[in-house]
């Protein structure tokens, strides 16, 4: 059978989808293990060796739990919330370049599902949609805590999306493209954007924490104040969907951070030892996932270190610190890029 591009794409889509779910599943396990280790505990170790089957046990538990829909809730919206959260979380993976192209039988197969020339915009669009799941869930529950959680989530996302977008503008200025493939390809040989845009990278990472609703910005859940926030009323697998969406978001955020700032699938010096393009592509995937794993670890590491922000602190940080800083970053980047013209203007 000939590997036509369309079949390859279908396989790739299924692979990415499967891997996303798998990584998210095992992120729950990793989260618990890492939390335990950071707190001098061992963590789950009963299901299978080292507790490796724990996610399966969790999933079974989630499915077996009683399904409850509050009578005062809006039933359709109540179901739509978690579905939307999971859907938008899964949609972001398509523009991420997971590796270089594979060459099979003289044909080149890109390891990116689709190379949108406005990949970054697509990413932002889908990520902004993600908040609807939480908002709808919080609204439909008809419960004041859920509503507060939903409101917090939406205002937090809106605030931090601004800073995130501004920090990306500086990146787009230096790379000159909106396509994730070109951004990743431009960073080969250790020219990672992190070294060009350290401040932008920092702002982006902070905003990514806020966008994924992870501690220290998990004000939407905030179990100590809001009893779980937007998912207070949820039970069974609908709750599972919300939690799952959070882990998928974390995975995708790590992938995006790796692609934008840490070279994506590139690793310096590998090209000197490996010349076969297919092996390079495979190694690229490995490096990509190594970077993503570290990203996910970092997300968890921060979560179990830093306490939650207060709501006003969160807003202060977003509007009064991150946005001015990212604007400053744009200005500095612009000045640096135009330095020859500016010099010529004054030195003339």
């Amino acid at each position: 059978m000939v590997l036509t591009p369309i079949i390859f794409k279908i396989i790739l889509v299924l692979c990415v989808f499967g891997i996303t779910l798998l990584v998210a599943t095992y992120s729950t396990y990793a989260e618990r293990k890492i939390a335990a280790f950071l707190q001098d505990r061992i963590g789950p170790d009963r299901a299978g060796p080292f507790g490796i089957l724990q996610p399966l046990a969790d999933a079974v538990k989630m499915f077996m739990k009683e399904e409850m829909i509050p009578t005062v809730s809006n039933k359709w919206l109540f179901i739509l919330g978690p579905a939307l959260a999971l859907l938008t979380a899964c949609m972001t993976g398509v523009v991420i370049p997971w590796g270089k192209s594979l060459i099979i039988g003289g044909h080149e197969y890109s390891l990116q599902i689709t190379d949108l020339n406005i990949g970054i915009l697509y990413l932002f669009g889908v990520v902004s949609l993600g908040v609807y799941g939480i908002m709808i869930g919080g609204w439909a529950s008809n419960n004041k805590y859920s509503l507060l959680g939903g409101i917090r989530a939406s205002s937090q996302m809106i605030s931090y999306e601004v800073a995130m977008g501004l920090s990306i503008i500086a990146l787009v200025m230096t790379t000159g493209t909106l396509s994730l493939k070109d951004i990743a390809a431009a960073q080969h040989g250790g020219h990672w954007n992190f070294f060009i845009q350290p401040l932008g990278c920092l702002i982006f990472i902070i905003c990514a924490f806020a966008e994924t609703n992870r501690a220290p910005f998990d004000l939407a859940e905030c179990e100590t104040e809001l009893i779980g926030g937007y998912h207070t009323e949820y039970s069974s697998m609908k709750l599972g969907f919300f939690l799952f969406a959070e882990y998928i978001n974390m995975f995708i955020s790590s992938a995006v951070i790796a692609t934008f700032y840490f070279g994506g699938y590139n690793m310096p010096f590998v090209g000197r030892f490996v010349h076969d393009p297919n092996w390079l592509a495979v190694l690229g995937i490995v490096f990509m996932f190594a970077k993503i794993s570290f990203g996910i670890f970092f997300f968890m590491w921060v979560r179990w270190t830093i306490p939650r922000f207060r709501y006003d602190q969160l807003m202060n940080l977003g509007w009064k610190v991150l946005i001015p800083l990212s604007i400053l970053n744009i200005v500095v980047t612009g000045v640096f890029m135009m330095r020859h013209e500016i010099m010529a203007y004054f030195v003339k």
Binding site: D40, W301, V302
Partner: peptide, 21 residues
């Protein structure tokens, strides 16, 4: 301060666990 905190937690990561199974 955040970096310091991260270092503290990660130092616990490699500590011997007092757990008794």
């Amino acid at each position: 301060a955040i970096f310091g905190g991260l270092m503290i937690t990660v130092s616990h990561f490699f500590r011997k666990k007092p757990t008794i199974k």
